[in-house]
């Protein structure tokens, strides 16, 4: 009940997307992002747009939730759109007032950029956040990057760090809230005054928070040692990831879509855009 901040926002489910292997989901997301950036005209955008809608249907997640994930981006989207509308020069002048001029190409470009950002964020949240637990994602990443361990990259350590970070984020958020309340009860004021004053007001929160985080880290290190943790070597996993026919199908379809976009770019007419 204290955790009103939903971190990770995984939505329990057993849809096609939920069941995909996290490793392949990462591949899928990367492929989709590449595809979006390859899109050059309206038709290819329609294709990736349809793909996105298809993914939403496959995930069985309420579209409202996906729209909600876009909320924090509204400002960025607006700013990019405005910059494109006012700064991009084209051939078809629509409106001019003094130095300000708006071209059809500008509006069109702004629109496509907005679509691109929206699709990018919506699909990655859908595939990697809403239908994948952070833990599964970390596991997927670790196993996907496992070959890199051979060239002495600390893949296991990185993934253990991620696991622990994910585990402790809610705990530390709760702790921050507690400390803030404690200092507020002693008359600390975090919401009024100049920037410098507010920054100073953070000291009574940050110091106890750091001290407690270090204490936790120390205790956790001892606990891990007691539980026979000696690093990644010789370690096995309970949940071994298994790819299935689903993963193969999903990746093949995504590759096909990518190819489709390339074909459309090459042969279909339409407005091409520049970034």
């Amino acid at each position: 009940m204290k955790n009103s901040i939903a971190f990770g926002q995984y939505c329990e489910g057993s849809s096609f997307l939920h069941k995909l292997d996290p490793r392949w989901k990462l591949v899928l997301a990367v492929l989709y992002i590449v595809t979006i950036f390859l899109c050059k005209n309206v038709f290819s955008f329609v294709l990736v747009g349809v793909t996105a809608v298809g993914l939403v249907l496959l995930s069985e997640i309420k579209p409202v939730l996906i729209l909600r994930s876009l909320k924090p981006l509204i400002m960025i989207i607006c700013i990019t759109a405005v910059i494109n509308i006012f700064w991009l020069k084209g051939e078809t002048l629509l409106w001019q007032f003094g130095p300000v001029s708006i071209y059809l190409e500008g509006i069109f470009n702004a629109l496509l950029i907005v679509v691109r950002v929206v699709l990018l964020v919506a699909v990655t949240t859908l595939v990697l956040t809403y239908t994948t637990t952070p833990i599964a994602l970390t596991d997927g990443l670790e196993q996907l990057l496992a070959p890199l361990a051979r060239i002495k990259l600390p893949v296991h350590e990185f993934s253990m760090m991620m696991t622990i970070a994910l585990r402790f984020i809610p705990t530390l958020l709760e702790e921050t809230e507690k400390i803030m309340n404690a200092q507020r009860a002693r008359g600390a004021d975090f919401s009024t005054g100049s920037l410098a004053k507010r920054a100073k007001a953070l000291v009574p929160i940050l110091i106890p928070l750091f001290i407690s985080a270090f204490r936790r880290a120390e205790e956790l290190a001892i606990a891990m040692e007691c539980r026979c943790y000696t690093g990644g070597e010789g370690r096995t996993r309970m949940n071994v990831l298994h790819s299935s026919y689903r993963d193969v199908v999903a990746v093949l379809v995504m590759v096909a879509i990518l190819a489709g976009v390339l074909v459309i770019n090459r042969f279909a007419p339409g407005y091409s855009i520049s970034m």
Partner: peptide, 12 residues
């Protein structure tokens, strides 16, 4: 005046 649970963690 409120003294919260485990108030020693508020000392700074």
């Amino acid at each position: 005046g409120l003294v919260m649970q485990y108030p020693e963690y508020q000392l700074f």
